[in-house]
Amino acid sequence: MIRLKVNGTPRTVTAPADMPLLWVLRDVLRLTGTKYGCGIGHCGACTVLIDGARANACLTTIGSLDGAEVTTIEGLGTPAAPHPVQAAWIDHQVAQCGYCQSGQIMAAMDLLAQRPDPTDQDIADFMWGNICRCGTYPRIRTAIRDAAARLRAETAE
């Protein structure tokens, strides 16, 4: 039995210790915003935050998460009240098929926490692990810059 927080809510999970967080989220907790793309940590579709740092949920076993705080895309904002990063994604209409975008947004969350004003090189380096087969990279870059500005404005208030 593993106790952890998911999106701020304490959860107790009964699952094999080697079961990846990805499948605990999707099939046990029924939080399907986090996606399966490759299962080997190469596409980034399953990116979540663990204690604030991005991680591939497909490579993180549930057994390693006792006491951890996991944040998924569902933990950021809602359609009615999106998080500023999500709002930037919406306003720049980044998504095409949209399947990778939960992971892109979660990776961007960690990037912006570390680099409130990221350079193009920061974005290139940090977001390297998140594949978008539709090729929305130009809009992801724009949305990250805009999200950074929104978050800085919030902080300044």
């Binding site: 915003g33 399966y36 950021l76 919406i90 209409q93 975008q101």
Partner: peptide, 18 residues
Amino acid sequence: QRHDIIAKSTGTARYAID
């Protein structure tokens, strides 16, 4: 605005896998 853009930016879009 694309009608699916909010859902696809908030993890609420539903694909067959979901």
